[in-house]
Design a protein around this nucleic acid. Structure first.
Length: 427
RNA sequence: GUGGGCGUAGUGAAGAGGUUAUCACGCUAGGUUGUGGCCCUGGAGACGAGGGUUCAAUUCCCUCCGCUCACCCCA
């Protein structure tokens, strides 16, 4: 009986790692440019944190959490998303005593019990950013800009930004009741699925994929027409800030989409989503919004906040789809090829080279030809060949594996050799 | 949870109701024990599981399992 990885999980093999390091290093670099500092929180948390934070009624909490009781009887859940944990950490560590807003980012695995499909897994990874402690629309714009720059710097093209405002909870009742009224009136034209949705989550009817519904949803009451006062000012200012972004990012554009709603309960006001133009099913690359009520819900003092999460697997899928150029992982500086009795001298030399910070792999004990082939497959820049002849004369043959294949005899010591090697294609 | 598609070496494919299941790439050993990429030769490695039909099934049928895509939902 062979073991298999659990459903919905993936082995990220060495050959795939160049994509992952590209995404991680870009995320880190962009976060850095915006002054977001890394935070790491535990992989598992108190189950109640997510029930309260994400929302008891959401699908995530209802049917997708990996929850269990530990040996001490505590309710534990593998984190299904990042925001609740970051807010918990903000409260628990008294980060409201730091200069506000507190800007933080994370990259971490998330766990949801789902049926896997393209771009969806039971364990997936997210890069997320959160700005906590500032209600200004400038922070909304900043977070949206950060997401834009991240995607652009990754090398992903043809992405659209959609955004919407859900207003504040107090003002939302009117909108929800009008929306409900509207859909009830045309319920006969809705597919069965959407009629069911109308009962449990009227907002979700808006982003239905059914053609019949979409036409009706387009004409439905719009959230942005209902928001007023501060929420309205906030929204208008955000839009004008976003318009300004076009100067710095010529490709930047956004579309207000009143059908954009988000599945997590904690959002208010701004919500947004980045998606490839030709997105199929699981298209969303990055999504987020403002969640001013959340920290209060979790027991902290009312603190405005906004953030986003983005799926790393989905970014990589899109990079591959767009055939983006990714730097391949580098081969070693040196492969040491040793013959017969010189093997121990070869091992010693490899050690000395590494001590001199030259990346060095020892070729396996095979024929000369096989060792050379090995060096080539490792993508090595140089081989150092030592046989009995070299050991006797205290030298080593250093050969560059580029086009010319220049070879020279060098004194058999790490310093001389390190001094003599070149990268491939730069002789 | 619902619905579609698919299960042959590591990967991608071919195959027939009946002796050693084919090909390519990859892996590995060599091509007279000192020079890689190309080329040549050899080797290892597979019919998802269980039942049924049949003299005979990897091939036909059923069930299960797995993978995959879509819906739901979401990154």
């Amino acid at each position: 009986m062979n073991f298999k990885r659990p459903r919905g999980t993936a082995d990220i093999l060495p050959e795939d790692q160049p994509y992952w390091s590209h995404v991680y290093s870009t995320a880190r670099k962009v976060a850095d440019q915006f002054g977001y500092r890394r935070i790491d929180t535990p992989t598992f948390e108190d189950t109640n944190l997510f029930q309260r934070g994400v929302g008891d009624e959401t699908d995530i909490v209802q049917k997708e959490m990996y929850s269990f009781e530990d040996h001490g009887g505590d309710g534990i859940t593998l984190r299904p998303e990042g925001t609740a944990s970051v807010c918990r950490a903000y409260i628990e560590n008294g980060l409201h005593n730091s200069p506000q807003p507190v800007r933080m980012f994370y990259t971490a695995p998330m766990f949801r019990y789902e049926r896997p499909q393209a771009g969806r897994f039971r364990q997936h990874h997210q890069f997320g950013c959160e700005a906590i402690g500032d209600q200004s629309p400038k922070v909304d714009a900043e977070i949206i800009e950060l997401g834009w720059k991240y995607i652009a710097d990754l090398g992903i093209k043809n992405v659209t930004l959609r955004l919407n405002s859900l207003g504040d909870p107090e003002g939302r009742a009117d909108y929800l009741s009008d929306l409900d009224k509207y859909f009830r009136a045309v319920a006969g034209q809705l597919p069965k699925l959407d009629r069911a949705r109308l009962d449990r989550a009227p907002l979700r009817v808006l982003d239905s994929k059914a053609r019949e519904t979409q036409a009706l949803a387009d004409a439905a009451p719009k959230s942005v027409d209902y928001i007023k006062d501060e929420a309205k000012e906030h929204w208008d200012e955000l839009l004008s800030l976003l318009d300004n972004l076009k100067e710095a990012y010529p490709d930047f554009s956004y579309k207000v989409d009143h059908r954009l709603v988000r599945g997590l309960d904690y959002y208010n006001r701004t919500v947004f989503e980045y998606e490839p133009l030709d997105a199929g099913g699981q298209g969303t690359l990055l999504a987020g919004g403002r969640y001013d009520p959340l920290i209060g819900i979790l027991g902290g003092q009312e603190t405005p906040a906004i953030g986003f999460g983005s799926g790393i697997e989905r970014m990589i899928l899109e990079l591959k789809k767009q055939e983006a150029e990714i730097a391949p992982s580098a081969g070693p500086d040196i492969v040491v090829v040793s013959l017969g009795d010189a093997a121990s001298a070869g091992f010693k030399l490899a050690t000395e080279l590494r001590a001199a910070n030259v990346s060095t792999i020892l070729a396996p004990s095979r024929s000369m030809k096989a060792q050379m082939r090995f060096a080539n497959q490792q993508n090595a820049s140089n081989v150092v060949i030592i046989g009995d002849r070299e050991v006797e004369n205290g030298v080593a043959s250093v050969k560059n594996l580029g086009e010319g294949g220049h070879q020279a005899e060098v004194s058999l010591d790490a310093a001389s050799i390190a001094n003599h090697i070149r990268p491939v294609g730069n002789e």
